[in-house]
Amino acid sequence: MFEARLVQSVILKKVLEAIKDLLTEATFECSDCGIQLQAMDNAHVSLVSLNLRSDGFDKYRCDRNLSMGMSVPCMSKILRCASSEDTVTLRAWDNPDTIVFVFESPNRDKISEYEMKLINLDQEHLGIPETLYSCVVKMPSQEFARICRDLSQFGDAMTIACSKEGIKFSAAGDYGTANVKLAQTAETENQEEAVVVEMKEPVKLTFSCRYLNSFVKATPLCAQVQLSMSAEVPLVCEYQIGEIGHIRYYLAPKIDD
């Protein structure tokens, strides 16, 4: 059988918020190591990779590997039924047709169970090549969300340029142009507020704002976001999920036609 318990259901609630813009259905791969998901959006422009390690759960049991196809909107509806203080347990039997979500209130006086039908999905797994990125930027996730929101008012696409001076975001459209420059912060400052640029070579890439604005739905998961970039390869936008794992978004760049 499969059973995974998280005292903080709010983590799973936030994970669903972070994927529901991009994915309508996804296969959750459950093994001894934990729960993994890899799925592309419908247009195959972005890829979501989620990893929740078994040791990050408060209780975890997986007797045999399971691939569970789930409707993301349905799962999101169910998780919205959990209070943030609730404990969540996911439960399925071997060869399951359904998965059960159990929510328990802190003093266990309310227990809710939701059973969701699983769906058969054609699994398409992509091999992500090991890449040494030219630029890796760590910055406050709220700042990144704000910049994506602000700049998307000016154009459909946003150019991210990274150099040793810092990181520059720009957008251009019918109304005019927008530019936001962030300088590296001094090492002594608060880590959550830090902007850190590790650069081997300067990089300038252009991405669709729509996807970036979907990625920043993960902002509540982590105070910092990591952006990894190299010329002419997908951007990696990564958020740590507490002590349990991470969510990575890969986004194909726009290129000159």
């Binding site: 247009a43 422009v45 390869v233 290129i255 000159d256």
Partner: peptide, 14 residues
């Protein structure tokens, strides 16, 4: 004019 690449043009199906 810029064109949107797909993720499958970078990552191969396994």
């Amino acid at each position: 004019k810029m064109a949107q690449r797909t993720i499958t043009s970078f990552f191969t199906r396994t």
